[in-house]
């Protein structure tokens, strides 16, 4: 049962922003794969909505002269999977996008919706966190740029202010050039499932087999997707080897804030953080070309 009081489909970004300015309560519906479920379950009722699916520019994935990659908020997961630009520059995004739902969901669901829905299990979030993504938020009063890390407030709640529309996700070249990356989704099923834990790792390796930089982000290891700063601070300058990687895995737990739920216990999640951070980092190292693990 979908109790919808009012639905307007915006043809342009301006129209959408105007509609939101007129009525900040208006809900933005992108792919609908989260919103419609909430409505069916009666969590949302009698809503007024603005549809943004027809706004083609919001779906673009492109790179500017400074090599800043811009992902339109309305890019679907299938758009990410199929984009050569994504595959060639930020393959971890395509890898994460491929783990979302099933083929039908990936065709409808958008990366902007995935972020704005604010769930700790959003598969795009850990990957975008390690890419230091910034969000371009448009409202009648202008553009606001916000780092993704500061966007997440608590489960289901992001810093999307009244009247704001997420239009683009920006990734700078210093956050992806010469990095190797890997996203591991740990879920009971191989499709159509939510992560019990998501681990995204990117790393840069000095030619001498020394870690230059490691970035780690976790999904479902706390109330929001999070970065593992303690673990990230450890490797720079240290050699790429099993014991260093094992230590990074152990340190990653220090930033996690897992809890018990019917899906998995805190203890199991923390064990998985240690294990899967190592696995993701080793794959990332392989892809960064620094060392070969196989």
């Amino acid at each position: 049962m979908y109790l919808i009081d009012d639905y307007i489909e915006a043809d342009s970004v301006d129209e959408a922003v105007n509609l939101l300015a007129d009525n900040p309560e208006r809900l933005i519906i992108a792919g609908g794969t989260d919103l419609l479920i909430k409505m069916r379950d009666g969590i949302l009722e009698n809503v007024q909505m603005v549809g943004i699916r027809r706004i083609e520019p919001l779906r673009k994935i492109e790179k500017d002269e400074q090599n800043v990659i811009s992902i339109g908020a309305m890019a679907t997961f299938n758009d990410l999977v199929r984009s050569e630009l994504v595959q060639n520059n930020i393959p971890i995004m395509a890898e994460a996008a491929m783990t979302v739902g099933g083929p039908q969901i990936r065709e409808m669901a958008t990366v902007g919706g995935n972020l704005c829905n604010g769930m700790p299990s959003a598969d795009s979030a850990p990957a975008l966190l390690v890419l230091n993504a910034r969000l371009k938020l448009l409202s009648k009063s202008g553009v606001r740029l916000a780092p993704l890390q500061e966007f997440y407030l608590r489960p289901g709640k992001v810093d999307l202010r009244p009247g704001e529309l997420l239009t683009e996700i920006l990734i700078s070249k210093e956050d992806y050039l010469n990095f190797g990356g890997c996203y591991i989704k740990f879920a009971p099923r191989k499709a159509m499932d939510l992560a019990i834990l998501g681990v995204a790792v990117t790393c840069r390796i000095r030619v001498t087999g020394i870690f230059d930089l490691v970035r780690i982000a976790l999904g479902v290891a706390g109330p929001t997707p999070l970065r593992c700063e303690i673990a990230e601070n450890f490797p720079p300058g240290k050699p790429v080897n099993d014991s260093i990687i094992a230590e990074i895995g152990r340190l990653a737990v220090k930033s996690s804030r897992a809890r018990d739920s019917q899906r998995a216990s805190k203890e199991f999640r923390e064990h998985l953080v240690v294990e899967l951070t190592q696995r993701a980092l080793k794959s990332a190292c392989n892809r960064a070309g620094g060392i070969s693990y196989d």
Binding site: C182, I184, P188, I196, D242, S243, I245, A246, G249, A264, S265, F268, H271, E275, Q278, R279, A280, K282, S283, N286, Y293, D294
Partner: peptide, 23 residues
């Protein structure tokens, strides 16, 4: 996996050995 983890842990299979191979 949760139950298997608990049983493997209780059986001591998870002790030591950080031999991890990437997928």
């Amino acid at each position: 996996p949760q139950l298997a983890f608990e049983k493997f842990k209780a059986a001591g299979l998870l002790e030591g050995g950080d031999q991890v191979v990437p997928d």
